[in-house]
Design a protein around this nucleic acid. Structure first.
Lengths: 335, 335
DNA sequence: TTTAATTACGTAAACGTTTTCGCCTAGCTG
DNA sequence: CAGCTAGGCGAAAACGTTTACGTAATTAAA
């Protein structure tokens, strides 16, 4: 908008060539300290900042990454983004946000649109609607990509996940120790490894303790709050479980509401436990026992891995980074 | 990464000039429909997408906007971003995210770094640490900028806000109707118009009903959860208010905890009401009466205004868009 | 002293678009 | 038939960087 201040302008005022200015700005070894200082001070004086488009066009580096996630308005993802953004600041990267709304077509469309050099890399937590392994197999060959939490397996890419199986196993044992023998499962993310692992942890814990699992005790998540409420009420009415194990945060409100509407007291009549990053879990009525994933840390780790790749740093041995979740026991499982 | 597919390539394969391809892709009137169709089909066939850097460098348009906010891990802001991102998709814009962590220097540094053509416009909700009107007075001259919720006044820029004064007045009256006469105020955003308006609404409602306000009944927000808890406990101990009016969500947890620790029953001993976008307000113990801002709508409206400006569309008369918040009465004010 | 190596800088091409301007042809007007 | 107009397209410059390569001056090695 104002008089353009670019490299050419700096070069003219200092009576040196454009190339020298560029190299000085990039702290090249070819330029003497004296010249560098002249350039730097004038640049600061004129408030010069390089034009990103020009720089990117020539150098094929954007210093920008994309975050492709289902939705930002979710405690887990907003915390992840917070972590990603903080690391990005440290590394001098910019962060683009794309929401898929659990729609695989949107997901594919977004990521495809990022392959023309708009970003240097992608951080993603994939949508739960479908598992399109083939697409991602090709994608990871085209651009540096790091998965977090909701990942695709058996791909040549870094994955940051949590101990879903173990913590679900542990949480189920907690319910059993509290005396539950008829534990219902509120099933989310069933197409994804994370969802399957949680369910497997649940099933194996039951088996270990000689408890029969039953399909009737499983409610699958629908993208409709009212429907989930109905299903949980039917579950409670027809099969009278003594515990609800919710594998995703989205089941909390319908679960609590269902219990209230059916006049079932938590934890006396039915115990409740959920995966969740809800900050107010301890203020609920009754306070909710949660499995809490380190969402912020997951974002940080995923971002760190991506930036290491982009800076051609050696990745410490492993492509699979697994962080620990926490089982936080509260009143809703009361024991 | 693969064989570059660019305009030049398309031109060669079709035996036409680069200029013609470019114009065809941009649906220019200069090009015949026949040629356009040839270009479009080949472009689709080769999976061509224009290089954003080159396009931006030449055209000075980035199709990108920046969102500068205090923090994404906050129900209000994550909902706003959700709204912004949805509108951005519709208009074909990309969204960059920057978190200031309520730090004015970070805020200034980020926005300055966006003036070199990285983005076409900025959406921002400013930090509460300081009110640096002068900086923004200059900024709005340099780049299209839309404020939402946390705004600077008297600037030539669109502002999307809510009816803070009116709803705070109304909420205070609600507490008075419930029989409260000693209403404490948990004061956040005191440097910003939004914070001041809420406080003014509170004060005026008290005055209207002949109730004296007192400085002792006001607790100001600190960026330290433990400290806020202490201050609220001291408030409750020393001045025994019969209601807590919280002007920001961050006070909810310390307020509830303070009441519990001091063995005060909500709403019998003390009523509680807060500005909040917490989805689980109705599940708290007891359920929380809230003033809920239309965060998602605010994001959408702010984004729409910005894109109208960027597309040189006439703005419908007004620079001030004011949306209505909702007072949702629940058990915590029980009456 | 001669030669090689090193330092410090400049020239110019390249990145992939958009856009101005001009050219050619065909069709129309008078 | 001359002269115009308009439609359709191409040549080339420009956007602001980065970088391969060349070169002159200085220093080090022989």
């Amino acid at each position: 908008m104002a008089e353009a201040v670019n490299i050419k302008r700096l070069a003219q005022e200092l009576n040196i060539s454009i190339a020298t200015v560029s190299k000085a700005l990039n702290d090249s070894y070819e330029i003497s300290l004296k010249t560098k200082n002249r350039v730097w001070t004038l640049a600061k004086e004129l408030n010069y900042t390089p034009n990103p488009a020009a720089s990117n066009l020539r150098s094929h580096k954007t210093k920008t990454v994309a975050v492709v996630i289902p939705c930002v308005a979710n405690n887990f993802f907003s915390l992840s983004i917070k972590g990603i953004e903080e690391i990005a600041r440290q590394y001098g990267y910019h962060v683009l946000i794309y929401q898929t709304h659990e729609n695989i077509e949107a997901e594919v469309s977004f990521t495809n649109s990022l392959l023309n050099g708009r970003v240097d890399g992608i951080l993603t937590s994939v949508s739960s609607s479908e598992y399109n392994s083939e697409y991602y197999t090709n994608l990871v060959k085209k651009i540096p990509l790091v998965f977090f939490d909701r990942v695709y397996e058996n791909l040549d890419a870094v994955k940051v996940t949590t101990d879903d199986y173990e913590i679900a196993f542990q949480a189920t044992e907690h319910l059993i120790e509290c005396g539950c023998t008829k534990i219902a499962y509120l099933y989310g993310l069933e197409n994804l490894p994370a969802g399957k692992a949680r369910f497997a942890g649940y099933l194996d814990a039951l088996k270990t303790h000689g408890i029969n699992a039953g399909d009737q005790l499983v409610v699958k998540y629908q993208d409709d709050e009212e429907l989930n409420l109905q299903h949980i009420k039917e579950l409670l009415r027809n099969y009278k479980p003594d515990a609800l194990f919710s594998s995703i945060e989205e089941f909390i409100i319908p679960a609590y509401c269902a219990c209230r509407e059916m006049d079932l007291k938590i934890p006396n009549d039915v115990k409740v436990l959920s995966f969740s990053n809800l900050s107010t879990a301890k203020l609920l009525s009754p306070s909710l026992t949660t499995i809490t994933q380190p969402a912020f840390e997951i974002g940080r780790e995923a971002a760190k891995s991506l930036f290491k790749i982009l800076n051609n740093k050696q990745l410490d041995d492993e492509q699979n980074i697994i962080l620990k979740s926490m089982l936080i026991k509260r009143e809703s499982t009361g024991c």
